[in-house]
Design a protein around this nucleic acid. Sequence first.
DNA 1: TTAGTATATTAAGTTATTCGAATATTTGAA
DNA 2: TTCAAATATTCGAATAACTTAATATACTAA
Lengths: 94, 94
Amino acid sequence: MNTVENNNNYEENARFLKALAHPTRLHIVELIRDKEPCVKVMEEVLGVSQANVSQHLTLLRHLNIVEAKRTGNQVCYRIKNPRVLKLMDMLTDQ
Amino acid sequence: MNTVENNNNYEENARFLKALAHPTRLHIVELIRDKEPCVKVMEEVLGVSQANVSQHLTLLRHLNIVEAKRTGNQVCYRIKNPRVLKLMDMLTDQ
DNA sequence: TTAGTATATTAAGTTATTCGAATATTTGAA
DNA sequence: TTCAAATATTCGAATAACTTAATATACTAA
């Protein structure tokens, strides 16, 4: 492993952590973790605007942390990168 | 657990992740992990300015992630919150 | 088609991060 | 003392992240 590779790892990992370093996005991930909720449901549980939920979801999607699946009218989300589950576990056990 | 408590947890966890969501700070934590390097050494290894290292260290100190110990002229750092080690492990194993 | 529901995108304003430069503080050694 | 080395702090400018509001898109049902 040379310096450049290390550097890239730090940057990639920093991007990953940054994507989750927001209370709403942490909450979203926890919601998605067990079920596969659609945006409308998340909007209600989170208590933030539809646009805001959608923006956070877009960010998580672009980082391959979650993925979307359209079913008719609605779009449901699920975890794509299982690494995020380990992270959530780490945060959970006090 | 009520909504407020949940909210606080998300915010606290988000603050924790945000503190680490920077390539230089991830690198710093990895350096501190094994040894207890002083600022001068970190500055050289990281290849960033002294002021910048110090700024990142201050941030990590304020979040109780690392702690400082002065020895004469120099200040050495070590991990204070062991939780960060779990996080680093999680990032490391591919 | 048209209307309604669900979701996504864009734009604009605000706040937060980041970094470099300059300066201050602390300590040891002469 | 005085100087030099190590570290910390402050300030300002650039950039990034966040939120709200408005609008666009996708789909369903009538």
